[in-house]
Nucleic acid binder design. Structure first.
Length: 612
RNA sequence: GGCCCCAUAGUUCAAGGGAUAGAACGGAAGUUUCCUAAACUUUAAAUCCGAGUUCGAGUCUCGGUGGAGCCA
């Protein structure tokens, strides 16, 4: 039982004794005391006035006195404006410190074999383009979430679904065949995902040129006239699309692919393997990984089967043109297409198939999809469909929805051609870190490899922290320059605080000062207890963050702690302290703060440098 | 047209229905016998509008306004 619950129970008991009225301990409001007030925990007395039938001050006094008398941990109290502020005994804080200091996994709850199994899907790339800034938010959130859920006592399977089939892949293949001249990532000295992405763009460019040409030369199309100019343009474009040879060839290729034409399949495999090599490099750079990867080329047929089975059972219906639909109007939603008139599957169908395979492969208790909020509707529908097909977990699936990432210069949307490439962005960040460090003249005496590793840690720490500190559901603005600043609410600031503590501990060790195993309670000072209050909150924050799936909570916590420590260190000079007991306490607190920072950043997937 | 999300200092972000709405960057003023000045101190500055629920609303409800997204 933690102290909060203990206080709740104690207050409930006191109320029963004083006012002869039973209250549920859980309804007693116990908060961490505001920073600007004296005390550690605060009982809100307003809700209790109906029971005590006395003024707030009087009620607070009575309960406060009883707490001091009956609860060992409560040393003193103070009632201010209806808030009962409790100050805990130094011995209590000394215990907290001892516990935290002796436990390397402080704040984490380990999972055993029987713990719930949670599957997290994230990343979900298309094989026709490289990862971009939006994927970065996705990957970082997914990876951090997996750790957050793991340290809350769950088993986790990280999974990735690769969209490796469909017309878009055929476009890349076609372009490569037509204009690639047999080039490879090696021959072009280019990452495979970028190469394939370039050919996708090439197709689009040629296609647009073709449409323009058709619209300018085709007499039939020129004859189309609608009531407004806009509509005319639209109709002509649609007609031109029908006449496009390029698009026709791409469609033919897709049919060949579905019919498992050996030549097309082998080209598809070759180009996809280039892409995967490129992705792996990016994932490695970002420091994310997966336990199991699914490919839509393997799952779409399963989905089709399930849909057709549902059709037989009357759960779906067929339109006159042969397409298959789900009617969701009684759920307050629309009708949703599941199979096109040519029998090909849509995303929804594939997701149904993927879900089936996953639950066949793992005894999953919970499924979390990390996917952008533009797909909110999709997952609403998926949940209902899975439920309707008869998967009981369908209703409980979690769509971990996050907002778009924008840049200070403006929106990043692929159709405007301002996509920020993930690899380029990370490389820029590393370059910036290197330049800044050189300017500051730091890292002297490091080998090049050691220094480069620090630059990488800093650059990724900056990127990860900046993105993860924001509430996922909100649209956010990523500012690369700000993110890598050593001042402010940034990753490097927190990393730097850690490195400084390490530096202090090294100096202490050089001076022959040992870090004690346990603190001396009697010489704990107010400022130190303030830090211990932060340390005490870490397990609470991690648990709460796990409950609401919020790496942001952990990120902001880490920053607060680092900042608090900086202030602490400025008020006290640890190494110059003459009193051995006080110095011991401070060294132990410093060491523990470093550990808590490290653990918090670990949850976020951020590394810490021992020196920087 | 229907559905969903968002709205807090100049800017980027915080705030489990609780006290005087916190930080950071930027602005203004300062601090160097002590740690890595990549630090610290002080200061000015905000809840989109209007109702409602509540002892108490940035937070919950309803109605506007503005922005983003999805479905046709």
């Amino acid at each position: 039982m933690d102290i909060e619950q203990k206080l709740q129970q104690a207050v409930a008991d006191i109320i029963e004794k004083l006012y002869a009225s039973k209250v549920d301990a859980k309804t007693i409001q116990v908060n961490v005391t505001r920073k600007d007030q004296n005390g550690d925990y605060t009982v809100v007395v307003f809700p209790l006035l109906k029971i005590s039938k006395k003024a707030p001050d009087v009620t607070g006094q009575e309960i406060g006195q009883a707490l001091v008398d009956n609860v060992d941990e409560v040393a003193s109290f103070e009632v201010i404006k209806g808030f009962l502020n409790l100050t805990l005994a130094k011995a209590y804080w000394a215990n907290i410190l001892s516990d935290a200091a002796s436990n390397d996994d402080y704040g984490f709850r380990k999972a055993d074999d029987k713990a719930p199994l949670v599957m997290i899907e994230y990343s979900s790339p298309n094989t026709n383009k490289p990862l971009h800034l939006g994927h970065i938010r996705n990957n970082l959130l997914g990876y951090s979430l997996s750790r957050l859920i793991a340290v809350n006592g769950n088993r986790v399977v990280k999974t990735n679904i690769v969209n490796d089939r469909g017309i878009h892949i055929c476009k890349s293949m076609l372009a490569w065949l037509k204009w690639g001249e047999g080039c490879t990532p090696k021959s072009r000295n280019q990452k495979g995902d970028h190469l394939v992405g370039d050919f996708y763009v090439k197709f689009d460019k040629e296609y647009k040129a073709e449409l323009k040409h058709i619209m300018e030369t085709d007499e039939e199309i020129k004859a189309i006239v609608c009531e407004t100019e806009e509509k005319t343009e639209e109709a002509r474009k649609a007609a031109a699309e029908e006449k496009s040879i390029l698009m026709k060839e791409a469609r033919q290729m897709l049919v060949k692919w579905e019919n498992e034409d050996p030549e097309i399949r082998s080209l598809w495999k070759k180009m996809n393997s280039w892409v995967y090599e490129g992705f792996d490099e990016t994932y490695h750079l970002l420091g994310v990984d997966f336990d199991k990867i699914y490919y839509e080329s393997n799952t779409y047929k399963e989905g089709k089967e399930l849909v057709l089975k549902g059709l037989d059972e009357g759960k779906f219906y067929r339109e006159e043109d042969g397409s298959v639909w789900a009617d969701l109007t009684n759920e307050g939603l629309d009708k949703k297409i599941l199979l096109r008139k040519d029998g090909t599957s849509v995303y929804m169908t594939q997701d149904i198939g993927t879900a089936k395979l996953r639950f066949r492969d793992y005894p999953i208790d919970k499924m979390i999809y990390v996917v952008g909020n533009e797909q909110n509707y999709h997952f609403q529908v998926l949940s209902i469909l899975l439920d309707r097909i008869g998967f009981k977990w369908g209703k409980e699936l979690v769509h971990y929805s996050y907002g778009m990432v924008e840049l200070p210069e403006g929106k990043m949307k692929s159709r405007e051609g301002t996509v920020v490439d993930a690899d380029d962005l990370v490389q820029d960040m590393i370059d910036t870190a290197r330049e800044m460090s050189k300017e500051q003249g730091k890292l002297e005496g490091y080998t090049i490899a050691e220094a480069e590793n620090v630059f990488r840690i800093l650059a990724l720490g900056a990127l990860k922290y900046f993105i993860l500190k924001v509430d996922p559901k909100k649209t956010m603005t990523f500012n690369p320059k700000e993110s890598i600043d050593f001042n402010g609410n940034t990753g490097p600031f927190v990393q730097y605080a850690y490195a400084r503590i390490k530096s202090v501990l090294r100096k202490a060790s050089e001076a022959g000062y040992a870090v004690p195993e346990n603190p001396v309670p009697s010489v704990l000072e107010d400022k130190e207890i303030q830090l211990l209050r932060h340390i005490e909150q870490f397990p609470v924050v991690v648990a709460e963050a796990g409950k609401v799936y919020s790496p942001a909570l952990v990120a902001n916590y880490a920053y607060d702690l680092a900042k608090e420590y900086n202030q602490f260190y400025h008020d006290f000079s640890i190494l110059k302290e003459e009193n051995e007991q006080k110095r011991g306490n401070r060294l132990l607190i410093s060491q523990t703060v470093a550990k808590v920072i490290k653990n918090a950043l670990w949850v976020l997937g951020i590394e810490v440098p021992e020196r920087m």
